[in-house]
């Protein structure tokens, strides 16, 4: 009894944070097995974290939770707008700015324990901690060298350059899938920074053009979270997928 009423309180709490409501049954399940239960705010945080790590197609959300309109992926439709905020999860991410082969070469260099900054070949630390930013060695010639004292050019911080364009595969709670294209750069979107299974709320008013959801900071709220198994599978299979796409020998 107590758990059910707590679940309802948690549901309200989540709702007031702008999140769609999970079913009471799911919330009860997600509550910790402790008696007495922790205070409400802590419970809400716990359940929210569970929600962010859950597969939302798996009877998590209330049947009234918003989902994509039925024809969302229809390429015949020139433009339409979302009428409600929709919670989605990330299934796939692709950096359209980089060729697949470029990504293959980067992955292989890292696998060999090497990376380059500019022309210099760097040995990666063997303890697995990757503090090394992906150095986009600028094509410095002697002319430029005075202008970049560190000898390292390009993308500071995140490792994803400013003008990158990513395409995501997004899925709503009903299992509908749609491409999400970065219309304007969203800093959190990047390979390695956006997780597989991560949750995003796409806001009402977001544009869908030719079956592609256009993402921009004003209509795209990244909620965090990930689904560990999916994330692992995605990364483990990434090199093979990239190579298959360009028709390279995947054994090598």
């Amino acid at each position: 009894m107590n758990r059910l009423s707590k679940a309802a309180e948690v549901q309200n709490g989540l709702h007031s944070q702008g999140l769609p409501s999970p079913t009471l049954a799911w919330i009860q399940n997600a509550l910790p097995n402790r008696d007495p239960l922790p205070p409400l705010l802590a419970l809400i945080a716990t359940v929210k974290a569970r929600l962010m790590a859950a597969d939302i197609t798996n009877a998590v959300l209330d049947s009234s939770a918003p989902s994509f309109p039925a024809n969302i992926a229809n390429p015949e439709v020139k433009e339409t707008k979302l009428e409600r905020d929709v919670l989605v999860q990330v299934l796939d991410i692709d950096n359209l700015t980089k060729s697949k082969w470029e990504q293959v070469e980067e992955l292989e260099a890292i696998a060999r324990g090497e990376q380059t900054t500019g022309r210099e070949m760097i040995r990666l630390p063997t303890n697995g901690e990757e503090e090394e930013e992906l150095g986009y060695g600028s094509l410095a010639t002697q002319n430029l060298s005075t202008a970049r004292p560190g000898g390292r050019g390009g993308a500071a911080g995140s490792g994803t350059p400013k003008n990158s364009t990513h395409r995501l595969v997004l899925q709503d709670c009903k299992g509908n899938k749609v491409y999400g294209l970065e219309l304007k750069r969203i800093d959190k979107i990047g390979i390695g920074t956006l997780n597989i299974g991560e949750k995003i709320i796409v806001k009402k008013g977001a544009i869908v053009a030719r079956g592609v959801l256009l993402l921009e900071p004003s209509t795209c709220v990244i909620m965090g979270g990930k689904i560990d198994a999916w994330q692992k599978a995605w990364f483990d299979g990434r090199l093979t997928r990239l190579k298959e796409t360009v028709g390279a020998d995947i054994r090598g």
Binding site: D94, L96, T97, K98, S99, K100, N163, T165, R167, R210
Partner: peptide, 11 residues
């Protein structure tokens, strides 16, 4: 600059 996906560029 350029994108490695035709459909996205068309959109």
């Amino acid at each position: 600059h350029r994108l490695f996906d035709r459909a996205s560029v068309i959109v």
